[in-house]
């Protein structure tokens, strides 16, 4: 019994570095939950700002940026422990955020006010505020950092933004309520989660052409890489499922159940676990990627949205 428990603890620990924490944004109560990945318990809950929805590491990996949409600021955390390090004000309504691959630009989608802001990556000085379609949501970049692609949930389209000229280059119509947008590792295709329907759409962005629609599940929403350079996971919020998509064959490999409204996801570096926020049940859900069974559901704060841990799988 003791040996089994010790083996379990070692196995659970192996996915994470010693002392590492899982950081969860509770968008509904303005806090972050610090979760111990070994005990699978919330250790503490810390106020961070109003409506924290998304987070990402800085390009050097030394800090974690939390975007507080209603506080109009960014909060920087220690990516390992979640400790608050500093705060940058006057960032207008930051919802989704992203760095261009060359780290030159920091792009923020102002979901509520229909704007996309382009900041200088190092200083967070505003370079351009662009009026866009309605409800700009998720962001992806071309590998050469020339273009940012942003979905517009309410006007059913996505736009390509020229980062040098800082203007909208072109816009393509999509299905209803496009949300997650994902660039394939070969830089050829954009995958778009169609939240208002049950599929993802695949675009050849250079040809500005819809290539394919793939059925996944109701409320197809957000992406995360499996980390093997080939597969990507897609959460289907209303179907309560997650689909794994092959980025080479552009087909769904499998779909598995994750109750509670799965949203943002992280994959452990060893590829064994998928962690996802399940917003409607105020929990973080851990899935075993071998058996596709739910291992744990960890209570956190209200409407958990973004989550992060340092020992994540590669982003492609």
């Amino acid at each position: 019994m003791l040996l089994a428990a010790a083996a379990w603890a070692v196995a659970a620990h192996a996915s994470f570095a010693p002392g590492e924490k899982v950081i969860v944004l509770n968008s509904g109560d303005g806090s972050i939950s610090i979760v111990d990945p070994v005990t699978k318990q919330e250790e503490k809950r810390v106020p961070v700002g109003k409506e924290p929805h998304h987070l990402m590491a800085t390009p050097d990996g030394k800090e974690l940026i939390v975007a507080n949409a209603a506080s109009n600021d960014l909060v920087f955390l220690d990516p390992k422990t979640g400790d608050i390090l500093r705060r940058v004000s006057d960032i207008s309504d930051p919802y989704q955020i992203g760095y261009s691959p060359d780290k030159k630009w920091f792009v923020s989608a102002s979901n509520r006010l229909h704007r996309v802001d382009i900041y200088h990556g190092g200083s967070f000085q505003l370079a351009k505020r662009l009026a866009t379609g309605k409800v700009p949501s998720h962001i992806a970049f071309s590998a050469d950092s020339k273009l940012a692609f942003v979905t517009m949930q309410e006007s059913n389209e996505f736009s390509a933004i020229d980062l040098e000229k800082q203007e909208i280059l072109w816009t393509l119509p999509t299905g209803k309520q496009p949300a997650g947008i994902w660039m394939t590792p070969d830089d050829r295709h954009l995958l778009v989660g169609i939240t208002g329907e049950s599929h993802l759409e695949i675009y050849d962005w250079r040809a500005k052409k819809l290539v394919k629609r793939i059925l996944t599940g109701l409320g197809a929403h957000n992406f995360v890489a499996r980390g093997d350079g080939r597969h990507v996971f897609l959460s289907n919020r209303m179907a309560n499922t997650i689909s794994m998509v092959d980025q080479q064959t552009l087909e769904v490999k499998e779909t598995f159940k994750v109750p509670g409204g799965p949203d943002c996801m992280e994959i452990t570096k060893d590829g064994r676990q998928l962690w996802t926020t399940t917003r409607w049940i105020r929990k973080v859900t851990v899935v075993d990627l071998e058996t596709k069974q739910v291992l744990h559901q960890i209570p956190v704060g209200k409407s958990p949205h973004g989550l992060y841990f340092q020992s994540h799988a590669p982003r492609q």
Binding site: S27, R279, W280
Partner: peptide, 8 residues
């Protein structure tokens, strides 16, 4: 569905 969170 854009209003899902607000509806929640």
């Amino acid at each position: 569905t854009t209003w899902l969170e607000s509806a929640f």
